[in-house]
Write a protein that binds this DNA or RNA. Structure first.
Lengths: 141, 141
DNA sequence: GTAGCACCTGGAGTAAACTCCAGGTCAAGA
DNA sequence: TCTTGACCTGGAGTTTACTCCAGGTGCTAC
């Protein structure tokens, strides 16, 4: 498979695919005798994995380390497992934070829907009153 | 409240707090006659909201727009609601993607735990065989 | 009234993750 | 064989979201 085909298949630019290989986000891609990339099933597997992990916000740094360990063979299995567990934990944490934000967004939207906006209207009213007071003080001068 | 106190309270650097105000991620913070920021409840509310949204990955751009709309008053209520809904939808999408990655990570970890690594071992075996073949071809030369 | 520390502004610098470019090869068709 | 379009590499540029800095001002305590 050429880089253009892979680019289309996974919706990742050719530049990004070359970049990923160059920084070690995947093992070297097989080449034709002329030096042109010829992606095989394994390469595609790596691309798909990295696309998935990157979309989830896993740092490139960690993924590079994983690939490096993978390339060192079976002696690194424990280290790889630890790395994955660490990333999983971070992912779970991030998702929990996002859930909080989601709840909050939903709350806010609901309030807009009800035309209530209690908190904000209250705060605005408070602000307006403070400004009115200030204005009155100025008038007294 | 001084910027140092707010910084500590929300665990956001003073530089970031100034930056947030400067780019319009929150309305202007009240000042002392000397020009020093004096955060009130409302400012703190904005900071907390923005911290929450940013942690969830909401783009600063969208948040700036929200604040701008908010400052234009009640006529922008519909636009603000739409903006929030859009951000909520994006958040939901991102969380779904993250869940996919999480499932995948969990799968991988489980396979490491079982010492199976079926897919990868299979791929490696395939690769080794390809290389062996190549080596044999070379020997024939 | 001055030492010293927190705060101010505008602007430059940084990190992560791409993205683009120049100048050069490869390969398939006329 | 020549053209043309896809690919190559190394390196520079871009975007987002901060982070740092220089040079200056505002309080507070001696």
């Amino acid at each position: 498979m050429t880089i253009a085909e892979v680019s289309k298949k996974y919706d990742i630019s050719a530049d990004t695919l070359r970049y990923y290989e160059r920084i070690g986000l995947m093992p070297p891609v097989p080449r034709t005798p002329g030096g042109i990339r010829d992606y095989d099933e394994e390469s595609c597997g790596w691309i798909e994995l990295m696309k998935c992990m990157r979309r989830a916000g896993v740092q490139i740094e960690a993924l590079i380390e994983y690939v490096a360990l993978f390339q060192k063979g079976d002696v690194t299995i424990d280290a790889r497992k630890e790395l994955l567990i660490e990333q999983r934990n971070q992912l779970v944490d991030r998702m929990a934070e996002m859930q909080e934000s989601l709840d909050r967004l939903n709350d806010k939207i609901e309030r807009y829907e009800q035309g209530l906006m209690t908190k904000e209207k209250l705060l605005q009213r408070m602000k307006q009153e403070r400004e009115k007071e200030k204005a009155e003080v100025s008038d007294d001068e």
